[in-house]
Design a protein around this nucleic acid. Sequence first.
DNA 1: TATAAATAGGGAAGCGTTTCCCTACTTACT
DNA 2: AGTAAGTAGGGAAACGCTTCCCTATTTATA
Lengths: 339, 339
Amino acid sequence: MASIYDVARMAKVSTTTVSKVLSNTPYVSAPTKERVLDAMRELQYVPSLAARGLTGNRTYVLGLVIPYDPAFLFGDPFLLEIIQGVEAVANDHDYNLLLSVARQADQRSAYTRLLRTGYVDGAITYETFEGDEAAKKLEERGMPRVSIGYETKDRPLNRVHSDDWRGAYEAVKYLLSLGHRRIGIVSGPAKFMSAMDERMRGARTALAEYGLGLDSDLLTYGDFTLESGYRAALPLLEASNRPTGIFAMNDRMAAGIMRRAREYGLNIPNDLSLVGYDDVPLTILVEPPLTTIRQPGIELGRVATQKLFELINNEIQQFDPIVLPVELIIRGSTAPPPS
Amino acid sequence: MASIYDVARMAKVSTTTVSKVLSNTPYVSAPTKERVLDAMRELQYVPSLAARGLTGNRTYVLGLVIPYDPAFLFGDPFLLEIIQGVEAVANDHDYNLLLSVARQADQRSAYTRLLRTGYVDGAITYETFEGDEAAKKLEERGMPRVSIGYETKDRPLNRVHSDDWRGAYEAVKYLLSLGHRRIGIVSGPAKFMSAMDERMRGARTALAEYGLGLDSDLLTYGDFTLESGYRAALPLLEASNRPTGIFAMNDRMAAGIMRRAREYGLNIPNDLSLVGYDDVPLTILVEPPLTTIRQPGIELGRVATQKLFELINNEIQQFDPIVLPVELIIRGSTAPPPS
DNA sequence: TATAAATAGGGAAGCGTTTCCCTACTTACT
DNA sequence: AGTAAGTAGGGAAACGCTTCCCTATTTATA
């Protein structure tokens, strides 16, 4: 594989000059530059990222860290949207994307390893949990990072997320405005995703506006999988005060609820209204199509990555949280409650 | 960030010894090893991948190359399954995953860049197209690569794919066995995915066994998106000899066909039987649930990556194509044709 | 007991870049 | 005509690691 030496020799210049051409530094004459470029073409020269990384300079690699069990998050089309957004912007900047998915067990290690290894110029972390020591240390060392999702209060900076509070608020308010008064909620894994807290707050606010509180019987939890929605629906449907409307915190769980409702002989939307979250493609496939809250997944990835580049390029030192708007998408799974 | 020098100094040994500890080379005494390990822990030492890569040794990074427009492939849950499989095995080996998604325009460049940059120990390429010069050169230079999908006949080695021929064969044969005789096919982007050729061959074989040929009116093409299935369904449904069964080469397109059929007032499965491909999660969501061919996506990723490691570790030099079995999953979208 | 082999550890080159700092030649002023 | 500033290019160190090749000590073998 051709190295910078080969190029230098062929163009009859020093490696310094080749490097200058590479980085578009001025003070290289046009003809010289041409010769160098020709040589690079001829030799199919590609600079070694390893060597570049070593000089403390750019590595042209971005880390995308998803510190969760793959089985848990990886089934989620929404994640694919985020990756797609990140990838697109990284690609625009000629950057490569290093994917790191920590599992439960070695969560910290995989995460840390990627970031401390000096192989990435910056990182995007998805939904990191509170109190991540490793991440904190990295930032002290100046590793640019932007977080998609919430994070601890210690770090109210450099993060982008969508407006979870409003999403849930809109979802529940819509059900209320249709006339529903007994509203069930199927939340996500609350322990470690603060987005869920935000949504719960939004939901409660909407309820409060109608003078209602959240009945604890009507709150269950799933882990975002369809099956967990199917399971979480059961207590709701069997509750003495069965809800007439359910808000599920993602679409896959909503689909699970839908299936369970069908088994119960409940017609959606006539007997039970259902609102999902994310607006992943499946929402238009199910029958009836799912009313849901649209989260801009690709945009989330894009914005986060754009900001990351601004950090990397030292154009900014930090930025205030960016909140992307969500949107209530009304489809066929919602209707006024049965009288 | 601590370097090997810091560790060496703290443990009062040479960098050579530290390196030996790192690579578990023998001839380091137990107490010395302990001291070194202690120092590494103390300093939170993580070897620089850049430096490692530079010495021509392992980089502990695997490339996953998907040389297609992200918008095209990235919407596909099946792809996520493959990534998940690759990621899992890479992680088992303490490897990181470098994702490269080439777009139409700079297809070759992004692809080449990743692979020639010396940053990866090996690569998995997904559905690469025929006549990829760059890839060929890399292999000559000894860069281990395994391809998921088919490739040119020049390279009948080091690839893993599922049994596309059989999948299509089973799908069509099942429709035939139900009594269907006019069978439409919605294929994928045939120009660059040889899997589609295989499936076409399988479909034709099944038809031939019943003394039938493939009516060219009954073959249309989509690009794997739901919308393209919706579009591709139109000519089939309007054909003078409207098919009673349709085989679509992925589930998303099948969902599009389903929607179109519904608009046409056709009942599935009574008026029209439908078989999809991939068995992505949405198949059980649509109504009726989709009969489909299950492809083992995660397994595909896993096996490919396992083989890649064998190549990287020089345990094998090459391997014959690995063909993973597929499975017909019969659900509710298929029935005997209307009499 | 003498010698060979195994064990333990270190010195230093080299991997391919970038960057700091030189030098030399032009050009543009006074 | 003399000087300062700008332009063009190169030498060489440094980045952090691995590896080749030494040397010295210990253990096993004859």
